[in-house]
Nucleic acid binder design. Structure first.
Length: 587
RNA sequence: CGGGCUGUAGCGCAGCUUGGUAGCGCGCUUGUCUGGGGGACAAGAGGUCGUGGGUUCAAAUCCCGCCAGCCCGACCA
């Protein structure tokens, strides 16, 4: 039994000044965590209980899907991460340290290498597969900007698991088993989630999905369809397939457009000097050609021009995700100087493309469909061309998803409008494939005695981040309100009497009886603390069921308060145990 | 890494403009009263004023560097 009189906790009346988001504010105020280091938090008794309950649910579901728990050191030698190049690749986000002999170590940001080598160490036959291993461990990442309390720390608790299969079908099965387990975990945690398609990016795998808790303070932007169940990370959104434009258009014509380096100035100029008969010119009539520079992993660079409708912005991160592992940046002045064929502000597709005069690679956003007509640069300063038709007057080297996704864009599956939302990444499932197994030499003998490279999946859940996410979802102005499954205790008994009086005695008796039924009990037995203080504390701490033993005892009643519903019910003290136990058992 | 704001007692803040005794509220200790919504009165404890340097007879206060925090962006998953 936890007693408020001795529990190591101090609730704060005021919000801490450095906490902005609700989870951070309330977890500190209610005495669950304390900041101990930049991006690092101490877990106090109440917080530690919640964290362990979340961990227990994760562990339970991982075990029942057949994964086996192991535990690696957090401090790892450099050479293992040299094997995959990640000692360098991870850059500043990696915590590095030296031992007394000057040897390099790191604090593990994630453990693909260790798991892969462990399986390589022990297994060598297809008969051993499939196998899934996991650990729940403190991870270290030297984040550029830790923020929002537990939501992005530099030290955090993560469950990471890895599956090992002989073939793609096996990987798909392992992936789905993890995905299903994750759904059960987040359901048990009462954490709302959206599964979004994600980019596999530089990791080189295929399928990749993120579990996002749709919460405004989250750092991830995703889209979801207002009608069907499509959702995706903004980088991974695909454009709805559009049919070619079959209308016929006037012959392309170059017009002088002095002082029109921007889309807005161009549209204004055209409406003033080359008005259309049917309607006014719009930004969406123009084709904007964005000049980028790709930096390939070998250090070489390449100029790339991407064509997008003039009313849309090019999304560099989205483009980058598709050309990964190359990096993308806008072409700088020096770059333009090397390409005199590119007239800034007046670039048109006529001089672009692998077989063109400039030889610069040219890709179009899919919204620039075949057969559509455009106003675009004439490749002469101060001139644009009207009625330039894709496919008739110019061709590109291909397409690339390039525009910044906007609310209202059509859903790629059902064409209804998409909406944009924010979320916290609480889980990630990822078909890694053979990248690590190849690099680290993890292969097994198959039925025919042939070496086969193992295919892997990696799957993560941010355990400490889940605690914060739950606090984000379940709170109000008064404080936290935990879901029953992870509440630090089952019931919070508030005793408003004075030491030794009937109320105190009744409260202690009730607490003992509830504990005898197997419930976890917190009793506020503080003497000389006014009822108002105890009520405020109870609301702040947020145990879902609060029992008040106080003045209504005179009528033979206790008060049963539901922190979530905000209700307060008088219950005869004789029925109290049975009522509370029933509440807790039904979950 | 860039921009903005901020570091004074466990928490929230004032003092800084105009240099000269370290201050308020909450919390904490002791006592009395009080006892259903962060109660009252009285007496206390608690401070390298983020840090290093400079200016000055004298620095929380003025100047410079650094560190840390929050927010926005970049980055990350």
């Amino acid at each position: 039994m936890l007693r408020s009189s001795t529990l190591f906790v101090r609730t704060l009346r005021d919000d801490p000044a450095d906490a902005e988001v609700p989870s951070h504010r309330l977890l500190v105020r209610a005495g669950y965590i304390r900041r101990a280091a930049p991006g690092g938090y101490t877990w106090l008794p109440l917080g530690w209980r919640v964290l362990r309950k979340v961990e227990a649910i994760v562990r339970d579901e991982m075990d029942s899907m057949g994964a086996q728990e192991v535990h690696f050191p957090a401090m790892l030698p450099r050479d293992i991460y040299e094997l995959t190049g990640r000692w360098d690749e991870y850059g500043d986000n990696l915590f590095r340290l030296k031992d007394r002999k000057g040897a390099d170590f790191l604090l593990g940001p994630t453990h693909e290498e260790m798991f892969t080598l462990l399986v390589k160490d022990l297994y060598s036959s297809y008969k051993d597969l499939p196998v899934s291993l996991y650990q729940i461990q403190t991870k270290y990442r030297d984040e550029a900007r830790p923020r929002a309390g537990l939501l992005r720390g530099r030290e955090f608790l993560m469950k990471d698991s890895y599956s090992f299969d002989i073939d793609d079908a096996g990987l798909a099965a392992s992936y789905n088993a993890h995905r299903d387990a994750y759904e059960r975990i987040f359901t048990r945690l009462k954490l709302p989630y959206v599964i979004v398609k994600a980019m596999s990016g530089a990791m080189g795998g295929s399928a990749s999905e993120e579990f996002l808790a749709p919460i405004e303070v989250g750092e991830d932007t995703f889209v979801r369809c207002t009608k069907c169940d499509y959702s995706a990370n903004t980088e991974a959104v695909t454009t709805a397939a559009l049919s070619p434009d079959t209308a016929s258009y006037a012959t392309a014509a170059v017009v002088e457009t002095p002082n029109c380096p921007t889309i807005a100035s161009l549209v204004d100029f055209l409406n003033a000097n080359h008005a259309r008969s049917d309607r006014a010119w719009k930004a969406s009539d123009t084709l904007k050609n964005v000049v980028l520079q790709l930096r390939h992993p070998d250090g070489s660079t390449e100029v790339l021009v991407v064509g997008v409708p003039g009313d849309r912005e090019a999304d560099i991160k989205r483009i980058e995700a598709q050309v990964s592992p190359s990096e993308v940046e806008p072409l700088d002045d020096a770059g333009f100087a090397k390409h005199p064929g590119l007239i800034r502000g007046y670039i048109g597709p006529q001089v672009l493309g692998a077989t063109s005069a400039t030889g610069v690679r040219y890709l179009l956003d899919p919204s620039v469909v075949t057969g559509s007509e455009w106003v675009t640069g004439a490749n002469v300063a101060g001139s644009h061309v009207l009625h330039l038709v894709n496919g008739r007057d110019f061709t590109a080297d291909g397409t690339i998803e390039a525009v910044e996704v906007a609310a209202g864009d059509p859903c790629p599956t059902c064409r209804e409008p998409l909406e944009i939302a924010r979320g916290i990444e609480i889980g990630h499932v990822f078909q890694l494939g053979r990248k690590y197994a190849d690099t680290l030499g993890l292969s097994v003998l198959d039925q025919n005695g042939k070496q086969v490279v193992v295919t892997m999946g990696s799957y993560g859940i941010g355990v400490s981040r889940a605690v914060a996410s739950i606090a984000e979802v379940f709170h109000d102005d008064l404080g936290l309100k935990w879901p029953r499954a992870i509440s630090p205790v089952d019931v919070h008994i508030v005793v408003t009497g004075k030491n030794g009086d009937d109320i105190t005695i009744a409260g202690e008796k009730l607490a003992a009886e509830l504990e005898a039924q197997g419930l976890e009990v917190l009793i506020d037995d503080r003497n000389g603390v006014s009822p108002g203080v105890k009520f405020k504390d109870a609301e702040l701490i947020g145990i879902p069921t609060i029992v008040v033993v106080g003045k209504s005892l005179a009528e033979g009643n206790i008060e049963l308060r539901d922190r979530h519903a905000g209700t307060n019910e008088a219950v005869p003290i004789a029925d109290a145990v049975q009522r509370v136990v029933a509440l807790v058992r039904e979950g």
